[in-house]
Every structure is written in structure tokens, then in C-alpha cells.
Amino acid sequence: MADQSPAAVEFADFSLWYGTFQAIYGVDLAVKEGKITSMIGPSGCGKSTLLRSVNRINERLGYVRTEGHVRVLGHDVYAAENSLVQVRKQVGMVFQRPNVLPLSIRDNILFGHRLHDGGKDAEDALLESALRQVLLWDDVKDRLNRRAQGLSLEQQQKLCIARLLPVKPRILLMDEPCSALDPKGTEAVEELIWELRGAYTILLVTHNMAQARRASEECVFMLMGKLIEHTATDQMFVSPRCPETADYIEGRYG
């Protein structure tokens, strides 16, 4: 299956160390634009680390060292001349636990917009369209000034996705976005992610192989900090190329 769509995120011989511990070993990966790419693998295989390298959010820890390149829309995010703030504008991120800010629903949605000096006039329209895109508008339109922490976890996670949209990112990083949700919430958020494909390039880390199968078009399998296999999701789960992938998918380890 030849695919012409260009890479939205590209890792080139990328390695990463936490202190002296090497978490990522020379990963080469091209994430196709407009697709949902899921990343699977056992705990500690580096999938979250790889995801967090795209917007360099893992450097908050302060003892991270990298080699190689990560290019987002053609820009090397580790090159000194590229501004991290601009990169993060293009790359939205959703975390494991919904981390709404202790502000009103409105202020949460418009937080990024205001950070980047968006105009005041556009706010109402942005607010509505963001909430509509995540199917939350009807639930919250009457309480936009209430604290976002009063929402259910599912609604909070949707809000966390909606909050990214006014900044108009091209890429969404999702780090196990459903792990704190019940099956109903998981289903709703998965559906939402599926709706967003095409408009955004989505990188989805998941612990749940069934989720990767349901909710992604491309699939990446990682093991011990190395990228083992990257194919279309259908193919990965039906006829994996590498024996490690097959063993993992069949549940022999991990």
C-alpha cells in the first residue's frame, strides 16, 4: 500500500536519555499527515517518551538529553533557531488524566488563544466551535462560566481536547487519553478522536490493543525503546511482520 501523504512528524535516528538511562534507541518514524497513528507496546517501551519528545514536554524533568532529529511539519523542534512556543502552538497534547485548569469552562477553552494574543472579538465564535467539535456544546452551553472541574471525567477530557482547537494545531498528541475513563467515556472519546482524523494528524499512545485496533489507521509497535514495526493498523493485527509484534499482540508477554 503506497502512501503519498507527507510526514507531519518525522523522527530521524532519534535517541533519548533520562540521565544515564537510555529510553529511546535510534528511532526512525514518519507519521503520516491527517491520519491517526497509534503507538502500542508494553510498559516502559518508550512510547510515551517518544510522544512527549514531539513537543519537548518531557524536558520539564530537566535531565533529558537527545540525539537525532524530530521534525514537526518540516521544522526541527530540537534546533536552536526554532521557537518551542511556536512548535507547541502547532502541536496540541492530551494527557492521561484530564488536566483542566482551575478556571471556568470558557477560560479553559480560550486559555491557549489568549496566550498567543488572539483577538477578543473572535472569542465567542471560537468557544462555540471548539465545544461543538468535541460534542460538548449542548452539555455545557448554559454553564460556560462555571468551574470546569465540576464536569465529569469524560466531559473534562473532551474539554481538554476542545481547549487545543482554538490555537489551530495541526498535530494532536494523545497520551492514553482514555485511561482514566469508564467504558462509556472511552467510547465517547474514541468516537471523538475518530471524528477528528483528517483535520488533524493524531498520534495516540495506548495501553489497550483493542483501542489501537478500533481507533487508528496506522500502528507503531515499540519494545525496549526501539521501534519494531510500523504498518497500517489492519495489517498489524492480522499479519504482523516481526515475531516480537506477533507475540505481543497475541499476549505472550507485556
Binding site: I57, R60, V85, V100, L101, F111, G112, L115
Partner: peptide, 14 residues
């Protein structure tokens, strides 16, 4: 909570 800082930083806050 650190998750607030992380959320804001990921949105591009200095």
C-alpha cells in the same frame, strides 16, 4: 498540581 503547569506549557505558555 503539576498537571496544571504541564497543561499550560503544552499549550505553548512560557
Amino acid at each position: 498540581p503539576d498537571s496544571y503547569r504541564e497543561a499550560a506549557e503544552a499549550l505553548g505558555a512560557t
